[in-house]
Write a protein that binds this DNA or RNA. Structure first.
Lengths: 224, 224, 224, 224
DNA sequence: CATGAATGAGAATTCATTCAT
DNA sequence: CATGAATGAATTCTCATTCAT
């Protein structure tokens, strides 16, 4: 790398350019690293999703990502770590999209609708990640259960916060938001899981109206 | 094993007696067989629930059931079969209890309540089986997903039938029972899953009132 | 197995034979087990001795012992255990032979001679085990060092006891038996190590007279 | 490497100077090279001594020496070479010190004492190198055994020469110096090995008087 | 010259399944 | 029928070595 820098320096008249170039060189390397990192994650998504966590071999991921086994272990300490990164990625994606959708909607009632629709949309747009998230993750082993429950809990909490605010707000009548939030999450979960495993409904978003109606009513709201 | 018994017989009284009483012997043997079969299933429940499907070794089950590996392979063609029997056992238990509860209740509305309460009760009484059913089963591998979806579907259909009848009945207003049944099942699922993995609520049945209220309302019923 | 027993019983007139045969059957199995166990140990001796502990693959031992890898892991929990068994075997062999030789010799001075000669003889008769014991064991890894030092210490202690008794006895004049015993052990060690690695002297026993003289003198005894 | 230095030069004063002073630059570079070379050796000493040859990773050495893996492979063709350099370094150190000590002592008897004391002192002052030399080296693999035996032999020869001269000299009575030299080396070896592995005696030099006495006597000398 | 990403050939260990006894 | 020895394919992870930058 220093050689590269020197080469540039000698061939230019400005040393500072040398540093600029050096930055670029570094960037190029980092970019390459990034690309490979992503390629591994993509491959892992595919493989985990196809074979399940336990049945997926690191070799499979290496093959799929066009890397070597050693290459994968350069980026990840072990198989589990890959899975966890994927899980967190999906959870983060869902959370941020849902929160964004809610923030952009001033109306309290419509906030919930927006979040629900956004989540269905996000799931629909990442079918393999969704499979990982809803199907493979729970049974992937003792070590993952805690993490999964945290993630589930974080979504339930998101819903609970919304419901609590809506109650405080007077938008909806008081209800057991603890159970309600868990149940809501479960309801959406199951609809999405069925879609991911059986392909019903063909377009996940088709479930939106009925689901919205259901959740609204369960919170004591009459359809308008 | 018959031979074993015979052997004993031979050494106690008379070999011919052994043959004469072979019928009785067979029964005895069948009973013994049954016992061993159950012992294996119980052991499998424990082990699968503790380690998960993939991490559970047939040796573990053999140890726990006080049999030998070979013994297990006499009763089951392979490891997967044990798991499937367990799954079906739990599904059957749940279904029959829920159906019984509904049949015993003439009032349409209360049928649903009874089914819900019975299911929570059944889950609560079989925590390890529940864990298998809701946590381990999904991620246990490709081969199990279809079966699991069938089971999920069968419960959703049970709910759907009930809702359809209630609609036809005029008990509740028309609604998308396809989505509703799946969502209901998911809602209950998630509440039970949380309980199984985190121990909340301490008594699963505590969730009943809130859950009942929620589901009722979602079907357009006002709490009485 | 029971079948075998029965078969025998039915075809004989004496039930007690049944038991005799059953014993024999068991013995036959146990004998087979013993044979395989030994075959693995022998193979391990060869392989470890040829390649060293670290470079020896369990696969090599499996090949050499005409077993499968799994077969080896049925008898030993891991590679290390095989090595330790071998080490203990050699240590036990040496110790017991040396002690026997000393016990059979009433004369104090000759006890030492007998022990020395016996050890040289034993080493000479088990060249590969000796290699393991003196060459491979020390550098085989942190976990083995403690054990090796224990073994070394046990031999030094054997020598020290002898020296102490000889001193108490008046056979030899007082000396620092702590250092002397370690040094003696080291002296013999090195002579044997050279033999094992370079083949000098051709017959290890050839070193006996000089070594005996050396050790005797070091204890303050004049050659007779 | 010159280029690297040039780079620095360019950025500090004047590029042309860089070329003019290229001699000096080369020296500077060589010095830097030397430093890095030593740093790698020191790191290797530490790491090999801590983990053993096989368990030490080149990465560990790179980390410890604050270099990169590639850097190490610039100075050494492979891992084995590092170890051999270390071995030769220790052997050379011991030899030269022992020989110096002997040369500085005119009295034949005291030559031996001086050599012994110097060796103990040298070992005591380089505990990690000693560990490498006496513990790790033997079991490090087939390839090292020959070299180790050469080293052992070279020390034995040193001792043998001394003994032969002492015999020729009339200082000591004739004895089998071939075996005696090996035994002496082994005796010292074992005392040092025990110290390195168990920490006994706390100060290695404490063993000197007893050891000296022992060796002297074994050569037929009465303590004065 | 230095760096560290990349490779790929193993290594130890596990385990479902079979089968002789 | 029961047992447990035996198999061997599969799996995760390691690491010396190479080489583009």
């Amino acid at each position: 790398m220093i050689l590269t820098v020197l080469f540039v320096t000698i061939n230019t008249t400005d040393a500072s350019v040398g540093f600029v170039e050096s930055r670029e060189v570094l960037d190029k390397q980092q970019a390459k690293s990034q690309v490979r990192f992503s390629r591994i994650l993509d491959a892992a998504t595919t493989v985990f999703s196809q074979k399940g966590y336990k049945d997926a071999a690191v070799d499979d991921i290496a093959l799929e990502s066009q890397t070597s086994k050693g290459g994968i272990y350069f980026y990840f300490p072990n198989k589990q770590a890959i899975f966890l990164v994927l899980l967190d990625k999906m959870a983060g994606l869902l959370r941020s999209r849902a929160e964004d959708a809610m923030n952009q909607e001033p109306d309290m009632l419509k906030k919930g609708d927006a979040a629900l629709y956004t989540m269905l949309q996000t799931f629909a747009g990442h079918r393999t990640l969704t499979r990982l998230f809803l199907v493979e993750a729970l049974g992937a082993g003792r070590e993952f259960n805690d993490r999964m429950m945290e993630i589930h809990a974080s979504f339930s909490r998101l819903i609970k916060d919304y419901l609590d605010r809506a109650v405080a707000n007077g938008t909806i009548a008081p209800l057991n938001t603890d159970i309600a939030s868990v149940a809501w999450f479960g309801a959406v979960n199951e609809v999405v899981t069925r879609w991911v495993l059986t392909g019903q409904p063909a377009q996940l978003e088709e479930a939106y109206p009925a689901l919205r109606e259901l959740l609204r009513r369960s919170a004591g709201l009459v359809a308008q």
